[in-house]
Amino acid sequence: MRHAGHFVRLLALVAIAAVGFLFVRSQVIPKDFGVKGHYRLSAVSDEAAREPRHLGSEACAECHDDIAAEWTAGKHTTPQCENCHGPGLMHVKKVSDDSTAGYPDKILTQYENAINRGTGIHECRWCHLKTFERPSTLKSIASVEKHIALRKGTFTPDTKCTDCHNPHTAIAK
């Protein structure tokens, strides 16, 4: 083919592009990609390496053994410590060796606020406000105002459930 010079050059370009693509491809694909399936195998360990933030009530009891004893003896054992107080990881880190460095401030304040909560009426309402869909066996009130009026008390903006109830035992103070 004497007059096919331009096609030869074109095919050469295609060949260079194809080889270049295959070379780059071989360089950029992670070594563990496709070992088990069509994915990067170490993505599994990446995910598994994340630190659990909820430590469980047993972990809380290691230090707060007095409250834990009160809690286990009471009638309010289904919600765990961290349900109302938030995840314990940051708190434990802070009080044990202060290794919270490296975590963003926003997250730290978020957890600090959570661990100190459990004093308002907000947390109680999550479960104990009457809604139509809740089972009747669950002790619930239609509204805080009505509940207090029924108990001959006065409702002020500062009124908290914990004024009368012990949240750890669910027994009236």
Partner: peptide, 8 residues
């Protein structure tokens, strides 16, 4: 996330 405070 904030519970279902409002009864329908």
């Amino acid at each position: 996330e904030d519970g279902f405070a409002e009864a329908l």
